[in-house]
Design a protein around this nucleic acid. Sequence first.
DNA 1: TTGTGATTTATACAGTTGTTTTAATCGCTG
DNA 2: CAGCGATTAAAACAACTGTATAAATCACAA
Lengths: 223, 223
Amino acid sequence: MATTRAIANLETRQRLLNVAAELFAEHGFGHVTVREICQVAGANVAAVNYHFRDKLGLYKEVVEMAANAINRSKVDVIEAAEGLAPEDRLRTYIRLTLHRLLDPEEDSWMEKLIAREMMDPTPALDLIVEKGIKPTSQRLGRMVAELLGTPLDDARVWQCFLSIQAQCLFYKSGKPISVRMSPPGFRYTPEIIDGLAHHIAEFSLAGIRAIAALKPQPTEWKL
Amino acid sequence: MATTRAIANLETRQRLLNVAAELFAEHGFGHVTVREICQVAGANVAAVNYHFRDKLGLYKEVVEMAANAINRSKVDVIEAAEGLAPEDRLRTYIRLTLHRLLDPEEDSWMEKLIAREMMDPTPALDLIVEKGIKPTSQRLGRMVAELLGTPLDDARVWQCFLSIQAQCLFYKSGKPISVRMSPPGFRYTPEIIDGLAHHIAEFSLAGIRAIAALKPQPTEWKL
DNA sequence: TTGTGATTTATACAGTTGTTTTAATCGCTG
DNA sequence: CAGCGATTAAAACAACTGTATAAATCACAA
């Protein structure tokens, strides 16, 4: 059988998954060696092949973890903003999202992994889109559509949503440059993150109001 | 001497630089082999070590090329928008930048390289900041400050500028996902790019106007 | 206790990597 | 033409990679 067996099994398996997630996110699939993963996880070199067949098999499971984790954290943010007035809902969404991305306390290995998949897409990117993005896209779109006063399938909904998302994500990916443009000792403190969130929110709310005044546009998006 | 010598010399040297630029941008430093570069460039395996000492020596020269090219193309865009009214200047800047980034005709190897440096910074990133970003930051800042009606050293200038830059760059890095969210056969045609540029411009102009109404904020940026 | 299947271990293998070495080749000057 | 410095070429190096193999170890059931 495999009772206590299955436990010990799941233990190294899970240890490998956790270590691999962090290392893949930090350095990318091609720059992490199987030996490195196993060493950090305290397992033998052959452990990856035994439990996941391939280095790639391990990677695919890690990406699936990331997609699910991303979806969960998005749902959390959405539900935290539920019940507020439309404007405040957007403000809250932006603030929580930005903290999740920039706060040094949070470890955003999932976002890092996804950023790497966007830069060098593998077949695993489809999984991220299906399990990490599409499930919440309707609810996020509705948040913007409400502010725009347009139906969900107006192209402006997704353009505005992407404008917001772009601003949030940019501060994450642009961190290495921001740091170099800032005075020495600069850090993303909670107060600074709140300030950025405030800027993005007011900037975007005004943008949405202006776009709402334009003529309707059919969308090319499928959900 | 080294007259025709210097020519033949510069020829393989330059050939290596061009090939390396494209390959490094497309696949990243660690995923391009010296052998691959030399084969595409029609040179011997030892050519890289002879002309650039290291694989890293070659990379550093490529990054320097990218920084200079980025700066040049930025100056071009800025000067193309010169003389227009402030609003139209921003509209033009956004439109040209977006075309430079998304048009399949343009090959944006420099932006790709910089995106990779942002994700996995090496000492070469300093070079990009110094030679590719800082030289034009004053002129770009002025473009926004004029619209805001604030001095250049108000923090809102850079926040607004980054909001704009974020939207432009996001459509590039988000391409793999955009494609997966769009109906099959979707492409970034010039007309679609113009439409995106129009959205970003109007969205951002309204955002700037709203931010201009807020209270002044001292900047933490050094130029 | 003994046997059994799952897991772990140590070791080896073949392929690829960046780099070095040594010889060959080139174009020019004297 | 001889010779010289710069460039190219072929071959080899040691290090590292993912993976496969076979033996050892484990927890448990009979």
